[in-house]
Nucleic acid binder design. Structure first.
Lengths: 347, 347
DNA sequence: ATCGCAAATGTAATCGGTTTCATTATGACT
DNA sequence: AGTCATAATGAAACCGATTACATTTGCGAT
């Protein structure tokens, strides 16, 4: 005696409709090749039985999983989750589902060991990597599905990438400060090993070099509120305060502002601050933050589209998405600059 | 001629080791029942071929997917993504992977239609629902895997739940304000249909009733920074300003504070603000926010554990996690209260 | 040596679909 | 009516593992 609550199988539908299982399968996957009469009969039978395909069986036969894996450094970080939202949207439109793995949640002993098991064609049809700190060797085996790098990237891992224009963004930010007359600009960076930090540092260097200025002094942070806050102490301990700070992301900028304001500095009167990313919070910070807008959801969408495109035409494309400066209240003309301007006028 | 790059199958390993496929399978899944000699031979063959099991085949045979689906209302919201991080951690320890679906990204025409396809045993072994606004009927069919509700819940959907103690949290927040002498307390709520809003409103009502005070006036928000900011205008338009506001979450509180400060009000001197959730940003807000701490990662972990426990002992448990008040700088004694205290002394 | 039981291993069924290939039905054209 | 191409359908192979069941092996007890 069979469990009456058992899910109906394609065989049950076929029997009820008086056709073969092959026909039922065709009605479901390619209705155009089956006659009107039988199609209707099958659809009726599907309706009556409440049949839904068993995806495990279908996937096994079709040798595809119907899912894409996203590797994120920190799932709890809104920066990444917004990219994920973009990825998710594109995947759903294609009927694919999104698997998420937090790369920092691995066994601390061997961070990559647990990951390798997930980098397998039988787990996911593709991988979107949002963590630039991974070992490229992880992806270097036959069983690894197609990979797209997004946002961050991995040196030594060839393949398509979708990136924001970090260098231009940083350059625009610094040029904005230079235009306001700032000359003593400090760069609050992300971890120096991080690819984002590196390309943003390049933008900073380019802007300063173009203005004939020496490289900016740096404080290294960790992209976190906390590290931004901690940087305020380091900054205030310096002999000569900078007149402006460019921060590699908004979270650090907000942490930094909190620390500076607590120490009695006024923003932007005493010190100008620029961030990067334009997270939603930045508009509502203690002082609305001037920052570089990066369209994260779009970046996610593009990454997913790039991955899907790989199926038909594998090519190691590199897509660089434009960014733009958003000027709010955390930046103002340098006071030195004002003095100079006043002197010029009086002269 | 076979593709030399094709992934090795269990058959290849068996041939190389000179054993049957059954033995190879046993070495991989239950090594103890195979002799030392053959086990080593098989392990060597696995090593040489670089074999890894095909999960689609295994899953089909074992009738399980190896994945859990999380239904979140907004993937980009850090509040949820931190819960996801907790879920993810627990699942990984069990070798399960995490599928994520943003319930608001469905076809706007019929929000639940797209979802139903995902609520299927052949897609996921279990479901963790973080969205209380879904139709309970969605889950009411035989093919739906076991469900655990977390954080929010769905009226009319029986089954295990893991919740923060929203009512107590709200009550503690309001009692804190009452203790500071506030009597004119406004409640900035989430959407009135939201279960979280409702239970927090219950806590607010309980605290006020216990103090013999009438219900608090409300402004309805949407749990977003923007709606919190918008609420500031509505608040300032009122004839009599409240001396304190309890906000249903930190994001609204931060948005509200930004609006109030822009209008020239000082926090906490002119008005006290309490939030809920204790998101990381709250400590770095323009004024460090007094709020109710909710352990989101733990909530996620518990939800995952509850789901796993359902496998062996299905039971509609309800787990309520404690919350605690975190007092920072956004709350201070009511000025009325101070006046009253002064008068009392002088009398 | 023989028996019996347990341990080790092999054979083949099974999971539930999709898809190839063969077969039958349909219909157009001469 | 006969021929042939094409459309519609069915039978069975296949995807790649796990596992029930059968068989063989190993070993101690008699």
């Amino acid at each position: 005696m069979k469990d009456p609550a058992a899910a109906p199988r394609i065989h049950d539908v076929a029997k009820l409709a008086g056709v073969s299982v092959a026909t039922v399968s065709r009605v479901l996957s390619n209705p155009s090749i089956v006659s009107e009469r039988t199609r209707q009969a099958v659809e009726k039978a599907v309706e009556e039985t409440g049949y839904t395909v068993n995806l495990m069986a279908r996937n096994l036969r079709q040798q595809q999983v119907g899912a894409v894996l996203a590797l994120v450094p920190n799932l709890a970080n809104p920066f990444f989750s917004e990219i994920l939202a973009g990825i998710s949207g594109t995947l759903r439109a294609e009927g694919l589902s999104l698997l998420v793995l937090d790369t920092r949640q691995t066994d601390p002993g061997s961070p990559s060991r647990g990951l390798r098991a997930y980098l397998n064609r039988s787990r996911a049809d593709g991988v979107i990597v949002l963590d630039g700190s991974l070992d490229p060797a992880l992806f270097d085996h036959a069983a690894c599905p197609p990979v797209v790098q997004a946002c961050e990237w991995i040196d030594g891992l060839v393949g398509p990438r979708v990136l924001a224009d970090n260098t231009s963004g940083a350059r625009m930010a610094v040029e904005h400060l230079l235009g306001l007359g700032h000359r003593r600009i400090l760069h609050l960076t992300g971890p120096s090993a991080n690819t984002l930090s590196q390309s943003r540092a390049a933008g900073v260097a380019a802007a300063l070099a173009a203005a004939g200025l020496p490289p900016a002094p740096r404080i290294e942070g960790a992209f976190t509120l906390k590290s931004g806050h901690a940087a305020s102490a380091a900054l205030l301990a310096q002999a000569e305060l900078p007149s402006a700070v460019f921060c590699d992301n908004d979270e650090m900028a907000i942490g930094l502002m909190a620390g500076l304001r607590a120490a009695g500095l006024r923003i932007p009167e005493d010190i100008s601050i620029v961030g990067f990313d334009n997270i939603e919070m930045s508009a509502y910070a203690s002082v609305p933050l001037t920052t570089v807008r990066q369209k994260r959801a779009q970046l996610g969408r593009r990454a997913a589209e790039t991955l899907l495109a790989q199926r038909s035409a594998p090519a190691p494309t590199e897509l660089i998405l434009p960014v733009e400066l958003v000027v709010r209240d955390s930046t103002a003309p340098a006071r030195d600059h004002l003095r100079v301007a006043a002197r010029d006028r009086s002269a």
